[in-house]
Write a protein that binds this DNA or RNA. Structure first.
Lengths: 245, 245
DNA sequence: CGATATCTTGAGGAATCTCAATACTAGTGG
DNA sequence: CCACTAGTATTGAGATTCCTCAAGATATCG
């Protein structure tokens, strides 16, 4: 688990009065929004921060899931692999997103940074103890899990029943909505991940992703800008396409 | 919500000493396994039983999610629809399975009986109250949600990256494993759902499902028995196929 | 036992994939 | 600052899987 490229820093203890958690950029997006300042101070006692460079493995499917994580900044992919290398990305995580739900004490998927990432990390046991103590924290976790499950079901519909064009349109709109939730630019949508990543998320090949972007561009629905950004030139049209209308 | 075809019966009150919940066929499969006899008695106060005929809508995506349900017997599908009628089944539920996770107080999917179904029903508010009171119940729910999420991710891998043959093989094995968990026959696997249902679960058409069964049958890996049952003649081969080996 | 739904099989077509070449981008070192 | 390199994206042509449409076979239910 100790990887030389992953730097870890213990925040200055809460005893000095400076609360990194209190100044957390994603405080009201993440699990922590369930906690009062006092409770946050308790949480702070068990948290560790991490910086991770781009394209770095964070944990692997089957690893012992001793910790849970919150993404503060950057983008993370969760994915599963088949023995022959086929990959399915099950989700992209952004600031405020939580990861670490486990089954039988093991991670059910692998996680990798797409961009440089800042995360915070909690020992699962201690978070569990906190949850027993604070039912509202428990509820918050349950709410997050429900949302993830709903997103997973949307993704199943996408994977099982949508065409390439519908998939790409849905993907762009979802990213835009999530950026808005984080209060980040949602119209030129920022797509930090590669075409291969997008393909592995949508059940397509790189080439089909690329062709479909070109097609949407040609029909004037989007515009591909520099810096991995996409302008949603006709959001209504995109919405119709996403829903198969 | 009151549908003439759905019969509802209040169990004889716990005051008479006979505990339907205590005699529940799925007690140690379901949420309820987290509860002691005393706690179960409390739960019993808020539960209602229901019998539902086959092919009956139970609730619809977007309905107010006032209740949560446990399947006691029979099979239920959860699914999402696109405006043009394309359908993605997100899961099949069997005895012991839980349904009713909601987002913004609404069901995120529709539910329909495949066979005649017996369920029990809890008002969500009262179950939430119980969860605040019993942290182990809360934990149990969280565990169930985690398992569902892991299953959803497996399904994403299946939908996004597996061939028709791999999908059918995976499907048969998953059903077999789940039947074993319920202590029901797991080798001639029981498939009560239609080919169309299987297709809508696996992201295939009815015809492809049918052809793929025929193909697996011809290669001697399975045998199609009468009564919607499938014999897994060569489970190892089936496992290899499911994993793309 | 008949009517109806479901399942299987066939033939042809469409969407997406594979393989391959070219264009672009970003980072590196001269 | 530019040229070079390695990775990434786009485009093309042909192959393949799966879908669509259609007919026939089988099962199910009243």
């Amino acid at each position: 688990m100790s990887n030389p490229e992953i730097s870890e820093r213990r925040k200055p203890s809460a005893s000095n009065g400076s609360h990194p958690c209190g100044a957390c950029p994603v405080r009201n997006l993440s699990v922590c929004s369930a906690l009062s300042d006092d409770e946050l101070a308790v949480l702070e006692e068990i948290v560790t921060n991490r910086d991770i460079p781009a394209h770095q493995m964070i944990f692997q499917e089957g690893d012992e899931a001793g910790d849970v994580f919150n993404v503060l900044e950057g983008v993370v992919t969760l994915y599963k692999l088949m023995p022959d290398g086929r990959r399915q990305i099950t989700g992209f995580l952004f600031g405020g997103d939580f990861m670490g739900l486990s089954v039988n004490g093991m991670f059910a998927y692998s996680a990798e940074s797409v961009t440089p990432v800042t995360m915070c990390r909690f020992p699962r046991r201690r978070l569990d103890a906190l949850m027993d103590r604070y039912p509202h924290l428990q509820r918050r976790m349950m709410g997050l899990a429900s949302n993830e499950l709903a997103a997973a079901q949307d993704q199943m519909l996408l994977l099982g029943r949508k065409s390439a064009k519908e998939k790409i349109a849905s993907f762009l709109l979802t990213l835009s909505r999530r950026a808005a939730q984080r209060e980040q630019p949602d119209d030129p949508v920022f797509l930090p991940m590669s075409r291969a990543d997008i393909g592995d998320f949508l059940g397509l090949t790189t080439e089909t992703v690329s062709r479909t972007f070109t097609q949407l561009k040609s029909s004037g629905v989007i515009r591909l800008l520099e810096g991995h950004r996409v302008l949603l030139a006709d959001r209504d049209a995109l919405t119709d396409i996403a829903e198969g209308l």
